[in-house]
Amino acid sequence: MHILDAEECIQCPEDQYPSKEKDRCLPKIVTYLAYEETLGMILASAALCFSILTTFVLGVFVMHRDTPIVKANNRSLSYILLTSLSLCFLSSLLFIGRPTPANCVLRQTTFAIVFTVAIASILAKTITVVVAFRATKPGSKLRRWLRPAVSYFLIFTCTLIQMCLCGIWLGTYPPFLEMDIYSEVSSIVIQCNEGSLVTFYCVLGYMGFLALVSFTLAFLARNLPDTFNEAKYLTFSMLVFCSVWISFLPAYQSTKGKVMVAMEIFSILVSSAGILTCIFAPKCYVILLCSDRNTLKIMKNKANP
């Protein structure tokens, strides 16, 4: 605290800051990304709306589960993907509100695991598409790879690896609650420190690796016959996902406080919405608005022009 005409200046405590006149110390305001503020409200509303939309799409797929377009695109994997996408949207809500020690541990691990399930489901879908078109010959040995158990095992294995990475993260240097008193002059930012950044980037890198494998396989299969082939949609969805998270990393490094949290929420919402739109929007269009095209006869005619 600085007193006018005083011979000595006294430094304000860490939880206070000097006034503009430098004649007294004022208490710092505790701040975090709250639901009550405009940004928090917008992000929370977007997460809830997208989650409800995803649940609606899942309901459409369940109601029309016996139609050709749903059956041809592996309905069981579609159910898993839609459920995990809905959870991805909801996981962003863990980043809003006053952080707590438990919240800091839960939000990153929950986000990582549900996103891994989603990407692993896309990878299983992509492999199914590729194998299906290469197993058309009678007696092909590749047909055994089309069994649902193989896809479930792939999703389980990919998720288990991510869970092990999260376990190592929590067992060595887990995220923790911290008070940032230096980033903003007049505020104390309550935030979650990620703990081990190396493990954090390993978790993100593993998801990126699965997305890159899915993108590569889907891109190579993009020119297969289009009727039962969703490789193009899978390619676009993974392109959106990779683009968002590649852009996220430098932005995450260059921001602090509430802006950094908002950036991660935004990346979660945009990447999830990209997957939902690219993969399921064309199918919902046919199911709901062009039901006359959702017949086996029409699809066979398209397959054999």
Rank of each mutant, 00 (worst) to 15 (best):
M1W: 08
H2C: 14
I3M: 12
L4Q: 12
D5E: 13
D5P: 14
D5M: 10
C12F: 05
C12W: 05
P18Y: 02
P18A: 10
K20Y: 07
E21A: 15
E21N: 14
E21G: 11
R24H: 15
C25K: 06
K28W: 05
Y32H: 13
L33V: 09
L33K: 03
Y35C: 07
L39N: 03
L39K: 07
G40W: 04
S45K: 08
L48D: 05
C49N: 09
C49E: 07
F50W: 06
L53D: 02
T54H: 06
V57N: 00
L58H: 08
G59R: 09
G59E: 14
F61N: 00
M63P: 11
D66L: 15
T67E: 12
T67R: 03
T67F: 04
P68L: 15
P68D: 14
A72T: 09
N74Y: 03
R75M: 08
S78R: 00
L82V: 07
S86C: 12
F89G: 02
T100R: 11
C104R: 01
C104K: 01
V105G: 07
V105N: 11
L106E: 04
T110V: 14
V117E: 05
S121I: 06
S121W: 00
I122C: 15
L123T: 02
A124G: 11
T126Y: 02
T126W: 02
I127G: 00
V130P: 04
F133I: 08
T136C: 10
R147P: 10
F156N: 12
T159V: 05
C164A: 15
L165F: 15
L165V: 11
W169E: 00
W169C: 00
T172Y: 11
Y173N: 10
Y173G: 01
P174I: 01
P174G: 08
L177G: 07
L177M: 11
L177V: 05
Y182K: 14
I190H: 07
I190E: 06
Q191Y: 08
Q191A: 10
Q191H: 11
Q191R: 10
T199D: 15
F200W: 08
C202T: 10
V203P: 00
G205W: 02
M207D: 00
F209A: 14
V213I: 13
V213H: 07
V213Q: 10
T216W: 04
L217Y: 04
L217A: 05
A221T: 02
R222Y: 04
P225D: 13
N229W: 02
N229R: 05
L234S: 02
F236M: 11
M238H: 03
L239A: 12
L239Y: 06
F241K: 00
C242G: 08
V244T: 12
I246V: 14
L249H: 04
P250E: 00
A251M: 13
T255S: 15
K256G: 05
K258E: 03
V259C: 12
V259F: 12
M260W: 10
V261C: 01
E264T: 01
L269C: 06
A273F: 02
G274F: 08
T277V: 15
C278N: 06
I279W: 01
I279T: 02
F280A: 06
F280E: 03
A281H: 05
C284H: 03
V286C: 01
I287V: 15
C290P: 00
C290F: 13
C290D: 13
R293P: 00
N294P: 06
T295V: 14
L296P: 10
L296W: 13
L296Y: 13
A303W: 12
P305G: 14
